[in-house]
Amino acid sequence: MAGNNKQAQHNHRKVMSRADLSKRLVGKLKNDEAVIGGIGWTNFELWGAGFRPQNFYMLGSMGLAFPIAHGVAIAQPNRRVFGLEGDGSLLMQIGALGTIASRGPKNLVMIVWDNGAYQITGGQPSTSATVADLVGLARASGLEKAFWADDEAHFDKLIDRSLSEDGPFFIAAKIDSQKPAATTHRDPVQIRERFMRGLGVRKEPHAL
């Protein structure tokens, strides 16, 4: 009973703007880093942060942003790979953290936007709104470089570290529930083909 109202320590943190943090992240990507956008407003915000051929946008398969990013990181060990996930999505596939920790991909960075809600479906509360500490779960899964971003400057610093140090990194931020301005263009084949070209796996076909 009491658990429902419990405000765990992790919730006494600064709430930041998802739009602002998404733009800060994308602004720091100068080396064709791959980015996998999980479903929901995480994804729309990534779309709105500007076009990059190295962005992949999920249209379903809730919870698979980190596994997909893990796969890209295995195939391309010399490229930094970012996964962006919401709290509800992460909680759905939380076992993936242990798999990633056990393999330790150095080039993988996991970002979690935690607003404690399944926002796109009507804002129903997730367990991270109360009891579940996502960085605590990451640490307990074996991810040593797992951090909460205290504020925007700290977020910037953590992203800089993740771009220069060996990972895997897990960076979570408490974010607002502001609706993104943009909506991802839902064309899966085009998304996948652009992404593969952006990663240098395929080339634009052209006549001789």
Partner: peptide, 9 residues
Amino acid sequence: GIVTGAWMG
């Protein structure tokens, strides 16, 4: 998810 990401990579 992992095999899908690897294929795209």
